[in-house]
Design a protein around this nucleic acid. Structure first.
Lengths: 188, 188
DNA sequence: CTTTAAATATACAAACTTGTCTATTTAATA
DNA sequence: TATTAAATAGACAAGTTTGTATATTTAAAG
């Protein structure tokens, strides 16, 4: 799959948008900063994206795909079905360490634009629901001790991961995510 | 305690700022919208608050106090130490129903301004740490079955509440918070 | 080599941003 | 009632915002 001329520009735009929207925030990132740091012309941006909101949507969609692909890869490497669930916590923890405790791209986008734009909200809901379904499948195949029901364990892991990321982003450390892993280990 | 002349203005400003910052977001709320909806003069705002950031800080501080006072009241009404912990979930759930699933003021402020302003981050950390300490005390007095350690149970409840609020704010329903309550009930 | 499409730089519009300043009116106090 | 402090309306500065338009250059394909 050879990269078209336009694809290079789109990639540069999305890479820059991702970095800026995630690190400093969507609302405080101007189009002008995006085109400057992506080193492309403004007309090019508006040729590929109708509006700033459409750029946000494209960024969320690409994040959804990439994030999920990498997660799937990590989980597939693990054979034991209970270990697979624990890998979720490792994955989240590692990513927080990597990105300097910037939190979750979807939660952040929801807090910045989810309230005012329904297309953005729908995209965020889609990503989160997809992830929850993924957890549910892992739980169903985990053979856990049924101290909690499958649904309860799924809800628990889902909320612990989001809560753990939020805590990491506020306190700038991943201790809670580590703690969350230990807790689930005990309950499996 | 009689209200001074200036106190009325400050209250109007903070009430409006709270409503707008929480509902639509800090960065998309302009000073002009605040003064217009608060029905006060711009010079009055800048007489009481040095900058927009200082208004945000004042809003966060007042939110911290009020939120905590009301929570303490709710918890004090309950006698049973285990029930006190469950009240936390009821409190969070009720508030999400009331405010239309707008999420958490502190998480939202963190996602909007925590990355760029250290005073804001410090205020948010203070509020969250205060709450976590409060949970720790309730856990210590709960006489729970010690399936988890005190610290683990504290971390768990803390993360479940934040994760549950985030889920409520994304999916626009409080089912997860209800589920979280059931889970903790089983583990107490 | 010529055509065609894409990317470029740059100027521009119209609105909005935070914050300052002046001049006037209101209201509490001495 | 006279003084004093506070609140008011509104203009203004300097910069930023998103998005459009024009004219030019680049580069790929026939």
């Amino acid at each position: 799959m050879i990269k078209q001329r336009g694809q290079v520009v789109v990639d540069k735009i999305l890479d820059t948008a991702e970095r800026l929207f995630f690190k400093q925030g969507y609302n405080v990132t101007g189009i002008n900063q995006v085109i400057e740091e992506a080193d492309i012309a403004k007309a090019s941006l508006y040729k590929h994206f109708e509006s700033k909101t459409d750029l946000l949507l494209a960024y969320l969609q690409r994040t959804h795909e990439r994030w999920f692909d990498k997660l799937g890869g990590d989980v597939n490497k693990v054979a034991d079905p209970r270990e697979k669930l624990l890998t979720l916590f490792d994955y989240h923890r590692e990513r927080q360490l990597q990105n300097g405790y910037s939190g979750c791209r979807f939660i952040k986008a929801n807090d910045e634009a989810g309230m005012s734009d329904e297309r953005v909200l729908a995209e965020i809901q889609k990503a989160k629901q997809h992830f929850k379904d993924f957890i549910a499948e892992l739980v169903a195949n985990s053979g856990h001790q049924k101290l909690l029901t499958d649904k309860e364990l799924t809800d628990l892991i889902f909320m612990l991961l989001d809560g753990g990321i939020v805590a990491a982003s506020i306190f700038k450390q991943a201790d809670d995510l580590q703690s969350a892993r230990t807790i689930i280990q005990k309950l499996l």
